[in-house]
Amino acid sequence: MSGLRPAAAATAALVATLAIAAALLAVGGYSPGVAFTALARGAFGSWDLFVSFTLVRATPLLLTGLAVALAFRAHVWNIGAEGQLHAGALAGVAVAIFLPLAHPLLLLPATLLAGAAAGALWASVPAAMKTRMGVGEVITTLLMNFVALFLAQFLVQGPLREARGVFNQTDEIPAAARLPTLLPDTRLHLGFLIGIAIAVALWLYLTRTPGGFRIRAVGASVRAAEVSGRFRAEPVIWRAFLASGAIAGLAGWIQVSGITHRMYEGLSPGWGYTAIAVALLARLHPLAVVLTAIVFGALSAGGAAMQREAGVPDVWVRGIEALVILAVLAVDKGLQVLGRRGSRA
């Protein structure tokens, strides 16, 4: 498949989404023109808005989007990035607060490792249930999300609660555990570059290594992969789960380390779910995830402006995300039908 067709399909899906969203906005009594102008201005209106809002909001979406893309490539339906993200954030905060390392070159890597490990650990439960007991991962990863949310709630209300004891949040993490900002006078932090580095690494892994080939082979067909006699699918499925969970875990900790500097209830507005739209729009291609994460980062940044300037509640953005997924599915279906007609002719 040439590189242009997926790009054209993704564009078609986006255009369809915008058209449907415009129609729905009109039905809802809003002016689509005013809403979209506000959205675009909020996301791209100035260099500072683009860097400090759009790119900053794209960062957790980039990481969770990569996590989902990798898992889906192996046909591991990890709907649990949201939970893995929370696990990673909690572990990172715990290490940052309790580990007596004052130097950033020691503390930062330790916290990043902890975040990734916790995300992988959270993903290992559904992985074990799938490989050992044959339980589908869709429901298990979803249920693990809720367990993670309540665990986070418990920890920030109890054991990890700030020393002041005023709000349900942790203390601020020490300076040595904070990711440095990339550009002076902006909020953009090193986490964005980490995300891009992981995207490139994943792309190289999937296309240039035997391990990556196996992930794609298992994704195409578990049975074919096993019948061909070259390898067993189970370790590949484990690897996809753990790597996906680790990247999602990083997403959570990187958000705390780079932006919020504390953990609290409701850290994520549902990035782990938006990540599915991000990954699908990118056709599960790691490099394309960078672009689609920025698209959704813009949607999120612009959503706030849309609420402020056009009076459109920002929950609309969640609805638009769902429209993107459905549009991608429908465009795919259309291409398949066209492809079949074309091959018959």
């Binding site: 599915i276 969640r318 769902a322 997924i325 429908a330 279906k333």
Partner: peptide, 30 residues
């Protein structure tokens, strides 16, 4: 989507859930 167009049941279901949570909020707030 999932039956008539035969799209993936898991992905379609996830989209319907995300969209429903968003649009019910939108309708309620409007």
């Amino acid at each position: 989507f999932a039956v008539w167009l035969n799209t993936d049941q898991i992905i379609t279901g996830t989209a319907v859930t995300i969209g429903s949570l968003g649009f019910t909020g939108a309708v309620f707030q409007s």
